[in-house]
Amino acid sequence: MFGSILRRILIFAITIFVASLVIFLLLDILPGDPARFILGINADIEAVAALREQMGLNLPIWERFWHWFFGLLRADLGISVTQNVPVAELIGERLFVSLPLAFFALILAIIIGIPIGIIAAQNRAKFIDSFLMILAQIGIAIPNFWFGMLLVLLFSVKLSLLPTGDFISWNEDFAAALRSLILPSIALALPQAAILARIMRTSLVDISNADFIRTARAKGLTKKQAIWRHGVRNAILPIMTILGLQFAFLIAGTVIVENVFYLPGLGKLIFIAISERDLILVRGAIIILILIVSFIMMLVDIAYQLIDPRLRLRG
């Protein structure tokens, strides 16, 4: 078992290496001289040349890649061209917004999606089932950024209950920071909750045809009880894998939602870095995004192996 976990970690490491290489090469072919961007349009040629030397831009591309990659391993991603601050520091600050946002959204998706799926499965083919599944269809179909805007109009503008974003750092005002993440995480969670509900329902319906549920029912349990006691537990495993994948998508989804609300997260950072052509920052932010996503995928795989004995044998 340790062997398969080690192998999974190795794959993660290779993924990150390959991703770094691809991103470095892709962003390196871009036209434009970072040194000139830093110094501005009126800088004279000698100053640009001096800065190029200082930034190591005259080195061959492979050396620059190694330099950057080993920097990444030491959490050193260079200095932002436009903000003059270490990229790692900028990203670090932003993760305190994006990661909690994605995490809350995941929690919300679970506490909304899974009960709805269970209720629908217990009442299969009844009115409540169809009603909930129609809701789920709508939940999947509403673009989450638009849903976010509608939430803002209702809860912030009309009812003045929650802020429109306005994130204040955690140590400044914890409750306010939490409040400012409520609406964005609902917006982010909605489609994922709808998907979870559908998956939960389908796996329960599937399981309810399985032998052990029939046995349970033969023992005198009602259909609802049987699904609740035996079905749900068995449906958790497939849900787990999906949750891991969903968290990855939620992280990516923050890029859009942070732009609907004014949240200083990683997504907003990337957005501004692109519009200001701060490629050192773009590069760093993308690799961190990929790192997080791949890391979660790895954790899910490992957790799956630990939980599922069949996989353990195979691994």
Binding site: V152, V157, T164, G165, V260, F261, Y262
Partner: peptide
């Protein structure tokens, strides 16, 4: 967002 933030 500017509109909403002002109105809110």
């Amino acid at each position: 967002t500017a509109i909403s933030a002002m109105l809110a």
